[in-house]
Design a binder for these strands. Structure first.
Length: 577
RNA sequence: GCGCCCGUAGCUCAGCUGGAUAGAGUACCAGACUACGAAUCUGGGAGUCGGGGGUUCGAAUCCCUCCGGGCGCGCCA
């Protein structure tokens, strides 16, 4: 609808330019049109005359009058009014609104959406938590946001693939492996302590039990009890422990064990995500990049472009030339590659696949990495604008106003799985989506669980269930239903509802453009409000046949919009609750 | 110290590329079911949009500065 009005305005402007009433360079690239906030100010309004006033040398209201005079007539516009400092308000024709009911019912699940895959090809990478433990509530926000964004962009007409990047290399895997092994030995009554830097969580113990169940006691070694590492430095002590473990178990056994544990962790993460309704199209392993020699190639490329140098025995990337605070190490003095190096290779890989846009969703604690990653892409000859990094702020979990901690290493955290089991998938997802991503999120467990109007999830779902219930009642009463005459819809509450429904596709476009799924959640709440209000004011089934059929069509249309919107944010639309 | 995010009603937050009288929810108060689900609806009070400058016909929105909160500033993972 917004686009239709923009089109009318464009025609008027073109006409004025042709008549030399207006200079073409006074015209902005996109014509501003917005849904009116207030009744009495029409359905849509434009401040175009005001924004062009100075460049055109005309007074806003005079200019508005000229624009209005040159507007072509359109059946969906009843009238236009100039108001305030120079707004042009558009009042939609009643038929344009009532005609919407048939359109919604006809388009069904596709109403509000654009033809799929017709616009850009987009890759979204999200969650990508390290496979050293279960997902916690912090990851949940990234999961809910990323998945909703993918669905939203698809609804807006893009082709979207989703991906999870698994950091399956590096020291953390060794630490994970020894952590499980030590717990395993403890289960076998060996006296050995789990050191400080190892993973402390209860899931490590469970993993060790599973290992015992599978392997019995084949990995028990009396030597293990003799391990006695006396080093003040925590990291040095861990390094020593890792190398002793490799000696005792033997390289082959150690690597096999490490792989098994990794696979367990990845499976655990994957199944938690499925429980949450999130399924990535692709799981991409860091080891893939590394085995294919991509990291070496990426570094070689940077070197050839002249952006690498040696200092203090390490190899540095001149990221500061691209706006980063300082240069970054890609190869350490000991010859090891940094994580940054393999991240560059991975991102180059993504950038060179067949996508117009690559989106990363990162936790806000990684914001320091944004400029260096964009720098690396630019230095490698890629357009950094094709890499869009969206930051999701922290989620803090509260139970009875008490803040709950979360740290994977210490093992003190509420897992995503526990959250889903406690509040349900729908409530969890809705809550995560309800805040825009730059906003810190206080997640109130008690509120999410409450089944009342205080909880916005139920409010929206209830509207959907209520409509389904009315339709069930109709069938039970054996009432006839024919295709309705929608011109019978004329009450204020009906028009408000129709006006709201007419904005659905605009909301999808706007939310998609800004990468803001929360707009959908707010819109759905407004639809539910308008519906509940209508429902309390007007009867549906106890009307004469024609009006009843018209209203049944109307609420069917409302149900369809609610269902389509809920689907975008990954929340179910129940027929009863 | 430097960088990023945030500061809007008692609380939790919206506010679309600057626009017309700043909006919801919640809490509080007062009402609405012998009728389609009261997990609902109707009405009410409540804000110096953190403070101060600036740009503009017009600023919660853009710029500067200060205050307050979160996060990040490793050859860690």
């Amino acid at each position: 609808m917004k686009a239709k009005i923009q089109d009318l305005l464009a025609q008027s402007i073109d006409r004025m330019v042709a008549l030399k009433e207006l200079s073409a360079d006074a015209v902005p690239e996109t014509l501003p049109v917005e849904a009116s906030r207030r009744a009495g100010q029409g359905d849509y309004a434009t401040g175009l005359a005001m924004s062009m006033a100075r460049a055109s040398g005309m007074k806003p209201r005079d200019l508005a009058t000229r624009i209005q005079a040159n507007l072509p007539s359109a059946s969906f516009v009843e009238r236009t009014v100039i108001a305030g400092p120079g707004f042009i308000n558009f009042f939609l024709a009643k038929e344009a609104l009532t005609g919407l009911v048939g359109e919604i019912l006809e388009r069904g699940d596709n109403f509000g959406k654009s033809a799929q895959g017709s616009l850009s090809r987009i890759l979204i990478e999200f969650v990508s938590a390290n496979p050293n433990g279960p997902l916690h509530v912090g990851h949940g926000r990234g999961a809910a946001f990323g998945d909703a964004l993918a669905r939203l962009l698809r609804a807006a007409g893009h082709h979207v693939d989703t991906e999870y990047y698994v950091n399956d290399l590096g020291r953390q895997m060794d630490i994970l492996c020894v952590s499980v092994w030590i717990r395993y030995l403890q289960i076998h009554d060996l006296k050995i302590e789990l050191p400080d830097g190892a993973y402390q969580g209860q899931y490590i113990v469970e993993s060790a039990r599973k290992l015992k169940h599978k392997d019995g006691s084949s990995l028990v070694s009396a030597e293990a009890a003799q391990i006695d590492i006396r080093l003040d430095d925590r990291d040095a002590a861990l390094t020593e422990l890792i190398s002793r473990t490799r000696q005792i178990l033997g390289e082959d056994v150690f690597f096999q064990l490490r792989d098994d544990i990794l696979n367990d962790m990845v499976e655990m993460i994957r199944s938690d995500l499925i429980l949450f309704g999130v399924e990535h199209d692709r799981w991409f392993y860091e080891s893939q990049v590394s085995e294919q020699g991509d990291v070496d190639r990426a570094i070689k490329e940077l070197r050839e472009h002249g952006f690498l140098y040696e200092a203090d025995g390490a190899t540095w990337f001149r990221s500061s030339e691209f706006g980063d605070e300082k240069d970054r190490v890609v190869v350490r003095a000991n010859g090891d590659l940094t994580y940054f190096a393999s991240d560059i290779a991975y991102h180059l890989d993504k950038m060179r696949r067949d996508y117009d846009l690559v989106i990363n969703i990162w936790g806000a604690d990684h914001h320091g990495y944004v400029s260096r990653m964009k720098a690396a892409m630019e230095a490698s000859g890629e357009n950094p604008k094709r890499l869009q990094i969206l930051l999701v702020q922290f989620a803090t979990l509260f139970r009875d106003s008490v803040k709950m901690s979360m740290s994977t290493r210490s093992g003190e955290f509420v897992s995503l799985k526990e959250l889903i089991e406690e509040t349900g998938r729908d409530a969890a997802r809705f809550f995560y989506i309800l805040r825009k991503s730059e906003q810190h999120l206080d997640f109130d467990l008690e509120l999410a669980k409450r089944q009342s109007g205080e909880n916005p999830v139920y409010y929206v779902q209830y509207a959907h269930a209520r409509i389904c219930s009315v339709v069930r009642q109709m069938k039970e009463r054996g009432l006839v239903r024919t295709s309705g005459d929608h011109s019978l819809l004329m009450q204020d509450s009906e028009m408000d509802l129709l006006r709201r429904l007419s904005r659905f596709s605009d909301v999808i476009q706007s939310a998609a453009n800004d990468y803001e799924p929360h707009q959908i959640a707010y819109y759905l709440r407004d639809v539910a409000t308008d519906f509940h209000s209508f429902y309390n004011k007007e009867r549906i089934l106890d009307c004469e046949d024609a009006l009843r059929c018209a209203r049944l069509d109307l609420i069917d249309a409302v149900r369809q919009v609610l269902a389509n919107g809920l689907d975008i944010i990954g929340v179910s639309a129940p027929a009863s609750m």
